[in-house]
Design a protein around this nucleic acid. Structure first.
Length: 270
DNA sequence: CTCATTTGACCGGA
DNA sequence: TCCGGTCAAATGAG
């Protein structure tokens, strides 16, 4: 697996057409970079069974959430329009919202009526969440199949998060790039299990049944906007934070010194 | 035996 | 009628 972190222009760069395209393009770049950085950091914590995996995962998630919100705001205020890959999908969502949910057997899931995020990465499977593949389709005018993933805890915790992964068409470089699209938000607690000893569970109820996704979303939003009680707890643990910072600095120093054409994990182990 | 993945059928929207 | 997304039975791996 190649874990090169150099930014390659995302197809999402071409997805927006607006007066503020340069700003949006920069944010999309940030999204791509964060995704690639996450793909490097999280596996390292997983390999060492580090208890701070949850915190790091949360931080990356917050970053992605922030950039998504900014793009959404720009679209709303400046009339940015989606073109290409997401246009049809989102148009369908808006149409569905207006029509309301039908009561058919295979009705479209409600999460699709929410926002979506798509960006390119060369490591589509490392994003801090557990996914289960539930489908694969040939896509028109595309050489590669699109894979469909849902949250592993969809049934256990009614988590509606899904994602699609599709290999990018023109891989001019040696690195294979994938377009990853995320739909819905994780409402599961899978990535907090087992709970790190330095993180105290909040009193926020994580209702599984009979709770609307909107109420779950609002709880998440409050948590993100206030910085999250987990972060507060970690702030109190100075030793943990100091150790974490030292680890991160060491890791980043190693990464920045790594030869660009070498698999970074092979290089770090050598 | 259990669980994840594969694959063809089915569904709704365009 | 076509296409993309989802379901669920079949299949395979551990």
């Amino acid at each position: 697996m190649k874990l090169h972190t150099r930014y390659l222009p995302s197809c999402a760069d071409e997805c927006f057409a607006s007066d503020h395209q340069p700003e949006i393009n920069e944010i999309v770049k940030v999204q791509s970079l964060v995704a690639q950085l996450r793909a490097i950091i999280l596996p390292a914590y997983e390999m060492t069974a580090d208890l701070r995996l949850d915190l790091v995962s949360h931080l990356f998630e917050s970053l992605q959430d922030c950039t998504t919100k900014v793009i959404s705001e720009l679209r709303t205020h400046y009339g940015a329009q989606l073109v290409d890959v997401d246009r049809r999908r989102l148009a369908g969502n808006i149409s569905d919202c207006k029509k309301g949910c039908s009561n058919k057997k295979y009705k479209r899931s409600s999460w699709r009526y929410g926002d979506s995020t798509s960006y390119m990465t060369n490591v589509p499977h490392y994003d801090g969440h557990q996914w289960r593949k539930y489908g694969q389709k040939n896509i028109n005018n595309s050489k590669h199949q699109r894979s469909y993933f849902r949250c592993t805890y969809k049934h256990e915790q009614n988590c509606k998060a899904t994602k699609t992964v599709q290999q990018h068409e023109d891989n001019t470089s040696e690195t294979v790039m994938y377009t990853v699209a995320y739909y819905g938000h994780h409402t599961c607690k899978a990535n907090t299990d087992p709970t790190p000893h330095h993180i105290i569970e909040t009193s926020t109820p994580q209702t599984q049944n009979g709770t609307t996704s909107d109420s779950i979303r609002s709880q998440e939003d409050v948590c993100l906007e206030t910085g999250g009680s987990q972060n507060k707890t970690v702030e109190n643990d100075e030793q943990t934070t100091r150790q974490w910072t030292e680890d991160m600095q060491g890791l980043l120093e190693k990464i920045t010194c790594a030869p660009l054409d070498l698999d970074i994990w092979e290089w770090m182990q050598s």
